[in-house]
Simulated assay, not measured.
Amino acid sequence: MSDKDSRDSIGEQIQAAEREAAKQRILAQAEAERIPVEETTRAVPDRPWRRRER
Rank of each mutant, 00 (worst) to 15 (best):
39 E>H: 04
43 A>L: 08
19 R>A: 11
42 R>I: 15
54 R>I: 13
16 A>R: 09
36 P>D: 14
6 S>H: 03
53 E>L: 01
13 Q>Y: 12
6 S>C: 01
27 L>S: 03
30 A>C: 05
5 D>S: 11
36 P>E: 15
30 A>G: 06
27 L>F: 07
16 A>D: 15
16 A>G: 14
40 T>C: 02
1 M>A: 10
4 K>N: 08
9 S>I: 06
27 L>H: 00
53 E>I: 08
25 R>A: 13
31 E>D: 10
15 Q>C: 06
25 R>T: 11
53 E>D: 00
33 E>H: 06
16 A>P: 01
23 K>F: 11
40 T>L: 14
9 S>V: 04
42 R>P: 03
41 T>E: 15
4 K>Y: 13
31 E>Y: 06
50 R>V: 15
35 I>Q: 06
39 E>M: 02
27 L>I: 05
46 D>L: 03
37 V>S: 12
43 A>F: 10
47 R>L: 15
2 S>L: 11
9 S>H: 03
21 A>G: 04
21 A>V: 00
52 R>T: 13
20 E>R: 09
35 I>Y: 07
5 D>V: 02
37 V>N: 10
46 D>G: 07
37 V>R: 06
44 V>S: 09
28 A>S: 09
47 R>G: 11
33 E>G: 05
13 Q>I: 08
7 R>S: 05
24 Q>F: 11
36 P>I: 12
21 A>P: 02
43 A>P: 08
50 R>G: 03
36 P>R: 07
